[in-house]
């Protein structure tokens, strides 16, 4: 089962926000919810299941799933670290900290740790520039990072 009853309920609560017949407005959240319950990854079957549930063409849901950054089409870790490398973070040493994180985890950005626990991605501005350097793990922001702080945060991931 690609979409659980619980997820369907959550998708329904998004559909309610939009006018009748405009349920495709909920596609972005529906894709996220379905991704979350399928190992953080969207297969073409999952995308089609979302499209069917929202009564929209499969290609329309696939366009959304491939246009936006936060959908994964390859296996990713249980946790995803999105490290900002744009200008304010760069000016505050993000590049060295990204290298530190890569060395610590034994992966390059874009890869997953061997145990499947952590993916590291280099991303564009996350809109927390006054807290630079920063990264996001899953739904949470961590700001004013240092190498020591990164070690503590990452060691705490299970």
């Amino acid at each position: 089962m690609i979409i659980s009853d619980n997820t369907k309920k959550q998708i329904d609560s998004w559909i309610e926000k939009y006018p009748q017949g405009k349920q495709s407005s909920a596609v972005m959240e529906a894709l996220k919810l379905v991704q979350a319950e399928n190992d953080n990854q969207l297969t073409s079957e999952a995308i089609q299941a979302v499209a069917d549930y929202l009564d929209m063409p499969g290609i329309a849901a696939a366009e959304v799933a491939t246009f936006y950054e936060n959908y994964n089409h390859k296996p990713v870790g249980k946790h995803i670290i999105r490290f900002c490398h744009n200008i304010s973070c760069m000016l505050n040493g993000a590049d060295d900290l990204i290298t530190h994180l890569e060395t610590k985890l034994g992966v390059k950005t874009g890869e997953v740790t061997k145990d499947g626990l952590i993916s590291v991605k280099k991303v564009e501005c996350l809109g927390a520039c006054v807290g630079a350097p920063m990264f996001q793990i899953d739904d949470q922001y961590y700001e004013h990072l240092t190498a020591d702080k990164i070690d503590d945060i990452v060691d705490g991931l299970k």
Binding site: K17, K22, S24, S25, A26, V27, M28, E29, L31, K32, L54, M56, A60, E63, V64, F67, Y68, E69, N70, Y71, E124, C125
Partner: peptide, 26 residues
């Protein structure tokens, strides 16, 4: 109501935002 994006700077452009709100590419 609040609506959530999914990662695309271009959606800050107002008509791209409307497209996105309608459930399309931004």
């Amino acid at each position: 109501y609040s609506h959530l994006g999914a990662g695309a700077y271009i959606v800050g452009e107002e008509t791209a935002l409307l497209e996105s709100l309608e459930g399309k590419k931004g």
